[in-house]
Computed example of a mutant assay.
Amino acid sequence: MNRTAGRSGPEDVPGAARPPVEFLDARVPVFAERAAPVLSSWEEREVDRLWEETTARNPATFDGPLVAVLGLDRSGDGRLVVRWAPMTYRYRALRRLRPPEEVPGSVFVTVLLPTDVGLVVGRGSPATAAPGRWSLPGGAVEPPSAGEPLNAAELRRHAARELVEETGVRVAAEELRLWALTRGRRFGSLGFHFLCPPVSGALVRRLHADLSVTQTKAGTGPELDAIDFVPSPAAAGRLAATADYLPQLFDRYFAT
């Protein structure tokens, strides 16, 4: 699997510790759809078995569609080309069956939402794929409808939709600006991190509380069972478990 490197940095010095994610050129790359990877009969059986174990532990787990990253190339003008294929969550079980470099990553979006009291973070509820983990509002990107392209506009729409579904904060997709693009060191997952115009922290608390009541009454429950505000990288230390990209994003955001 060809995973081209982005811009090098201090973390690439021989002997230096390699952080969980690397920052790539923040221009939106070109997306090229490919066929899903072929699995052996044994892998198919193991994926199904491991998925059954997952749903037995958490019946709310949903085998939803996602955009799987097969690798990165460079176009003639130097832009990144993302080779992707439509897959579903159950195929994340391949992380337990294959070497990391042979496992498809995924595309996800997040929203950096500044307030007067810090950046908004949320804790995944027990019904999510990462219960108890703190992260920015966002989620895995789903493949577009048949015949529709996967592009910058689609990513922005998805980020805006995740923001309102998780926090109740509603913004137009056009107001979101791509701020950073990260790639996971282990599986090559791509994170598109969008910056949102600032809002009031008190408003975010109220909207999230109202949303949680509505979702609980509907029987689904909130995706984020708690929110918090991070005013500095040091303040993030109070968060018990965080998404792997979060410390590096905080460092870069508060430094700039």
Score class of each variant (00 low, 15 high):
residue 108 F to W: 03
residue 4 T to F: 15
residue 18 R to F: 00
residue 254 F to T: 01
residue 60 A to L: 15
residue 207 L to W: 12
residue 15 G to A: 01
residue 213 V to W: 12
residue 40 S to A: 08
residue 80 L to D: 06
residue 229 F to K: 07
residue 4 T to N: 08
residue 167 T to R: 11
residue 183 R to I: 13
residue 140 A to T: 14
residue 170 R to S: 14
residue 55 T to A: 01
residue 183 R to K: 10
residue 165 E to F: 06
residue 2 N to V: 15
residue 88 T to N: 13
residue 237 G to P: 01
residue 162 E to T: 04
residue 188 G to L: 04
residue 7 R to V: 15
residue 14 P to D: 04
residue 111 V to L: 04
residue 15 G to V: 07
residue 118 G to E: 07
residue 243 A to H: 12
residue 157 R to A: 11
residue 68 A to Y: 07
residue 11 E to Q: 14
residue 199 V to T: 15
residue 193 H to Y: 00
residue 185 R to V: 09
residue 256 T to P: 07
residue 42 W to C: 14
residue 194 F to R: 04
residue 23 F to K: 10
residue 254 F to W: 03
residue 94 L to H: 07
residue 96 R to K: 06
residue 180 A to T: 03
residue 82 V to A: 02
residue 253 Y to N: 03
residue 112 L to A: 09
residue 110 T to G: 05
residue 203 L to G: 08
residue 103 V to Y: 00
residue 113 L to K: 12
residue 70 L to H: 03
residue 243 A to S: 12
residue 131 P to V: 13
residue 31 F to R: 04
residue 255 A to W: 10
residue 88 T to G: 11
residue 182 T to P: 06
residue 253 Y to D: 05
residue 125 S to T: 07
residue 211 L to C: 14
residue 85 A to C: 04
residue 25 D to S: 13
residue 164 V to R: 15
residue 155 L to T: 13
residue 5 A to C: 14
residue 64 G to R: 10
residue 192 F to G: 01
residue 193 H to W: 00
residue 35 A to L: 10
residue 160 A to H: 11
residue 116 D to N: 05
residue 6 G to V: 15
residue 143 P to S: 09
residue 164 V to A: 08
residue 103 V to H: 01
residue 256 T to F: 13
residue 187 F to Q: 08
residue 94 L to W: 08
residue 49 R to L: 14
residue 206 R to D: 05
residue 256 T to I: 15
residue 5 A to H: 09
residue 212 S to N: 08
residue 74 R to M: 06
residue 28 V to L: 01
residue 167 T to N: 08
residue 228 D to I: 14
residue 254 F to A: 00
residue 176 L to S: 05
residue 215 Q to F: 08
residue 143 P to R: 10
residue 83 R to I: 13
residue 39 L to M: 07
residue 139 G to K: 00
residue 98 R to C: 05
residue 222 P to V: 14
residue 238 R to Y: 03
residue 61 T to V: 10
residue 224 L to F: 09
residue 133 R to E: 15
residue 234 A to C: 00
residue 231 P to N: 01
residue 192 F to P: 02
residue 243 A to C: 03
residue 247 P to S: 05
residue 123 R to F: 01
residue 152 A to M: 02
residue 228 D to V: 10
residue 202 A to I: 12
residue 195 L to G: 02
residue 157 R to I: 11
residue 25 D to Q: 04
residue 181 L to E: 12
residue 214 T to E: 12
residue 161 R to G: 02
residue 138 G to S: 05
residue 152 A to Y: 03
residue 198 P to L: 00
residue 141 V to G: 02
residue 82 V to M: 04
residue 137 P to T: 07
residue 149 P to I: 02
residue 214 T to D: 05
residue 233 P to H: 10
